[in-house]
Design a protein around this nucleic acid. Structure first.
Ligand SMILES: [Mn+2]
Ligand SMILES: [Mn+2]
Ligand SMILES: [Zn+2]
Ligand SMILES: [Zn+2]
Lengths: 159, 159
DNA sequence: GTCAAGTTTAGAATTATTTTAATCTGATGT
DNA sequence: ACATCAGATTAAAATAATTCTAAACTTGAC
C-alpha cells in the first residue's frame, strides 16, 4: 500500500464514504487525463468530473466556473479557461462558435451539428445523421477540410 | 433647383469634376439608405460606397474603418460599428460568426455559405447551390428556422 | 432660418479572455 | 519520508472587441 498522496480526497466536501450518488468513474477520468498527457491535478479532476459526468453539455468558461463553485470546488476562472483549452487540444472537448462574445465548449465529441436559439443563446445537438451536407464544392488548392459546421439558427415562431 | 445641402461634396477630397474612376452609383446608394429609413448622412454614404462599390466583401468594423481612413473619409470607429449594425438590421448586410473575437459582415446577401481559413481568418463564399443541406430534423416546437449556416473550415493540407 | 429629431463622436465603460509573475503541487529519485 | 523541479494554479493586471454616455453637430421639415 504505497500510497503517496494520489487520492483526490477533497474534490468535494463530502463524507469519506460517500453515497456514490454520481461518483464512480474516477479511474476513467484519471485515465482520460493521463492519456492526454495531462497531470491529474485536483482542479482538472474536478472539472473533468463536472464536464463529463452528466451527459452532453454545451458550456462557457463562466458556466463551468459557476458549476464548480456550486459544487464547492475552488478553481480560479483562469484555470477554467486553461483547462477548457487543454481539454480541447487533447481532443476531449469541441469548441463551438455561434456567437461572437461567447465561446462554447461541447462535451459531445461525436459527429453532429447544432440548433442555436438566438434568444436564449442556448445550443442543442442535431445528430450527425440527421443532417446531410451534400455536394461540397472543391476545397481551395492546398487546403484540407478540418471540419464542417452546420448551425441551424432558430427563433420563436411569431403568431 | 431647390438644392438645400444634399450634395455629398466632401466624401473624398477629389476634384469636383472627378474622373469617375469608380463613382457613379450615388443615387443607388442614396435610394438604398432612404429605402431602409436611414438618413443619408455623409458618413453613411461614404461607408455604403466603400462597402457596396467593389464586389462581395467580408469585413470587420476595424477593417472598414481602416478602409475609410485610406479613402480619406473621416469616421469614428463608433460610427462604423453603428452603421454596420444599422445596415445589418436594414437587410443590407449579413453578419457572420466564424470566430468568436471577430464579427464579420458580409456584403453578399444572396443565399450562400462559407469557407473559413483558420490560419488567416479569411472567409470565402460558397454559392448557395453548391452546398446541399438535406434532411434537417424537425425544428423544436414553436420555433422557426431563421437561417442555416454552413461553415467549411479549412487549413493548409500538410505534406 | 428655426427647431426637433436623428447622428456623430471622444472618451469612458463593459465583457470576455489572456498574460504575468508569484506561489504551490505532483511526480520522481533517493 | 524528503528534496527537487517542471508543471499547474492563481490573483491581479493587461488586452481587445465592442458598447455606452453625453455633448456637439446635421438633417429634413416647416
Ligand atoms: Mn466563455
Ligand atoms: Mn469586428
Ligand atoms: Zn453539441
Ligand atoms: Zn459571404
Amino acid at each position: 500500500m504505497t500510497r503517496t498522496s494520489n487520492t483526490p480526497s477533497d474534490i468535494a466536501p463530502s463524507d469519506d464514504a460517500a453515497p456514490a450518488a454520481e461518483g464512480r468513474p474516477f479511474s476513467q477520468i484519471l485515465d482520460r487525463l493521463r492519456g492526454a498527457g495531462l497531470r491529474p491535478t485536483r482542479q482538472r479532476m474536478a472539472l473533468a468530473k463536472l464536464l463529463f459526468d452528466g451527459g452532453d453539455r454545451h458550456l462557457t468558461a463562466e458556466m463551468l466556473h459557476a458549476d464548480a463553485q456550486s459544487a464547492n470546488v475552488r478553481v480560479s476562472l483562469a484555470t477554467v479557461y486553461n483547462t477548457l483549452h487543454q481539454f480541447h487540444r487533447a481532443g476531449l472537448l469541441r469548441e463551438i462558435v455561434v456567437d461572437s462574445q461567447r465561446t462554447y465548449f461541447d462535451t459531445n465529441m461525436s459527429d453532429h451539428h447544432h440548433f442555436y436559439f438566438d434568444e436564449t443563446g442556448e445550443l442543442s445537438d442535431i445528430p450527425g445523421d440527421q443532417v446531410e451536407v451534400a455536394a461540397l464544392p472543391p476545397v481551395p488548392d492546398g487546403m484540407a477540410v478540418s471540419r464542417v459546421d452546420v448551425v441551424v439558427r432558430v427563433r420563436p415562431a411569431d403568431a
